[in-house]
Computed example of a mutant assay.
Amino acid sequence: MISPDLPAELKAALDARLQGFSRNEAASRAAAISRTYRDGGGSGTIKSETDALAYALARMPATYAAVAASLNALVEIRPDFAPTSLLDIGAGPGTASWAAAQALSSLQRFVLLDANASLRALALELAGTRLREAHYELGPARKLLADAERADLVVASYMIGEIDEAERTALARLMWEKAGEALVIVEPGTPAGYARIIALRAQLIAAGAHVAAPCPHDEACPLEAPDWCHFSQRLSRSRAHMQVKGAEVPFEDERFAYVALTRTPIASHPSRVLAQPVVGKAEVTAKLCTPSGLSIAKIPRRAKADYARARRWRWGDAVTGA
Rank of each mutant, 00 (worst) to 15 (best):
A69R: 04
D218T: 10
K298R: 14
A247P: 14
M1E: 09
D306M: 11
R38P: 15
I197V: 14
F81T: 03
A91R: 01
L18Q: 15
A297Q: 15
A182I: 12
L6F: 05
P191N: 07
A69L: 06
S157W: 01
P222I: 15
P214N: 12
A121D: 00
F21S: 07
T95V: 01
A318D: 12
H230V: 12
G193I: 04
F256E: 10
L223Q: 12
W176K: 08
T262H: 07
R109A: 04
V284C: 12
A195W: 03
V244R: 04
D15A: 10
S271G: 06
K178L: 05
L112G: 00
L113S: 00
L107K: 02
Y37P: 01
H217V: 02
S292V: 11
L71A: 06
Q19D: 14
E125R: 04
P79F: 04
A73C: 09
I299S: 09
A99F: 00
G128R: 00
A282K: 15
R302L: 14
N116Y: 00
S232F: 09
R120E: 00
F231I: 06
V279Q: 08
R272H: 06
P226L: 11
T84S: 10
D114F: 00
S85C: 09
A202P: 15
C229K: 05
A31I: 03
A275P: 15
W176T: 10
F256Q: 11
G180Y: 11
A308E: 12
G44I: 00
L183P: 10
P214E: 13
L294Y: 11
A172Y: 12
S268M: 07
R35N: 12
E224I: 14
A82W: 08
P7H: 06
V186R: 04
R109E: 04
Y136N: 01
T262I: 12
V111F: 01
R35K: 12
S28W: 09
D147Y: 06
V154K: 10
D80R: 11
T84A: 13
V186E: 09
R272K: 10
A31C: 10
V211A: 07
E283I: 14
I197T: 10
S85T: 02
Y37R: 01
I296E: 15
V75D: 14
L153Y: 02
P140F: 00
T63P: 15
V184C: 09
T129Y: 05
V278N: 11
A260W: 05
Q102F: 02
V154P: 04
W228C: 13
R35E: 15
V319I: 07
Q19Y: 13
L138W: 03
T63V: 10
P4N: 01
Y307A: 05
Y136R: 06
L204F: 11
T36Q: 06
A207L: 15
L122T: 02
G321I: 05
I198T: 13
I296M: 09
L122A: 01
F251Y: 03
I2M: 13
A267L: 07
A73E: 13
E283G: 06
S28Y: 08
A148M: 13
A225M: 14
A100V: 00
S236G: 15
A151S: 11
Q102N: 01
A73K: 10
K178R: 15
A209Y: 08
E162T: 00
I160Q: 05
L71E: 05
R132F: 05
E137Y: 11
A286V: 07
A66Q: 12
